[in-house]
């Protein structure tokens, strides 16, 4: 086995197992592999959320410092040349506690997310349970959706939906960024559209869900009182889950939904509980 493969099996292997457990449990409860994908995507994104938030915080700080310094940096670059310019720039950075290499510290958090994404994909690629299974208008999750038929050609719609969500999510995230960065991201979105066009619908659905989660993340980052709103939404979803659990047949399924419904009330109740506790 090559080093790469060894690394792969050490890092990805356990994660694949974890996703298999989550997927299987969700499949059992919800009785539909398509819906289990939703659970898998949700769980995976929740797991990597702290890493994402940390990386974002580091990058935002670096961006803020760069913004603060950019006028003088531009002046220095315009005024000096050669070695002198480098040394004056370095002195200015030093006085402002800025290191151009600081962006690297955010990369650790980002790179840590990759095994999760890779494991989820690898796992899903190997699932045979999608064959012949339909989800809504999609006839077979194990092949491209082919939902639109024009003339003799079938067009896969799901990749376009995925890209649309991707673009909207990127647009929201990049508000205030320079045009260059925006174009790079839209370029990436287009790239993925082309490359993933012929993937099985289950996978494209999974990625679309990731994009939806990302969009929700970006929405909440822009909205004030995001935590509060999120807690309320979760509470509402929890109530729905609770009611569904009471109405469902099957002990374990019901118990699961009721437990989820109760757990979902914690974020909204916690601040109230904290207030009541003695200081």
């Amino acid at each position: 086995m090559s080093l790469f493969e060894m690394l792969g099996s050490v890092l990805i292997g356990p994660l694949k197992l974890l996703f298999e457990v989550i997927f299987s449990a969700a499949y059992k409860v919800l009785n539909h592999p398509g819906l289990a994908i939703i659970v898998l995507s949700l769980v995976m994104n929740i797991i990597v959320l702290p890493l994402y938030k940390r990386a974002d915080a580091i990058q935002e700080e670096a961006r803020d410092t760069e913004n603060k310094l950019k006028d003088t940096v531009a002046h220095i670059k315009k005024t000096f040349s050669g070695d002198e310019r480098m040394m004056i720039l370095q002195t200015y950075y030093r006085q402002n506690n800025y290191n151009p290499l600081s962006v690297l510290s955010s990369s650790v958090s980002l790179l840590l997310q990759i095994p999760f994404f890779m494991a989820a994909y690898q796992f899903l690629s190997g699932v045979t349970a999608f064959e012949g299974v339909a989800l809504g208008p999609i006839a077979d999750l194990s092949v491209p959706d082919g939902l639109l038929v024009i003339g003799g050609f079938s067009v896969n719609i799901l990749p376009f939906i995925m890209t649309l969500v991707n673009v909207v999510s990127s647009a929201l995230y990049l508000k205030g960024f320079p045009l260059k960065t925006k174009l790079q991201l839209y370029g990436m979105a287009l790239f993925f559209l082309v490359f993933l066009y012929n993937s099985p619908a289950a996978l494209v659905f999974y990625w679309t869900l990731n994009n939806v989660f990302s969009l929700a993340k970006n929405l909440f980052m822009r909205i004030k009182n995001a935590k509060r709103i999120l807690a309320i939404l979760l509470s509402v979803a929890g109530v729905a889950s609770f009611i569904t659990g009471i109405l469902l047949n099957g002990f374990w399924r019901s118990a699961f939904m009721i437990a989820v419904g109760i757990a979902a009330q914690f974020p909204v109740l916690l601040p109230a509980v904290k207030k009541l506790l003695p200081k």
Binding site: Y52, S106, Q113, I114, M118, Y121, Y173, L174, L185, M188
Partner: peptide, 19 residues
């Protein structure tokens, strides 16, 4: 596509790469 990641993470990785 083994390296597909969500847009937010993707853009951050891009920033890191450029940085």
């Amino acid at each position: 596509m083994i390296l597909y990641i969500d847009p937010g993470t993707g853009s951050m990785l891009f920033t890191v790469l450029l940085g």
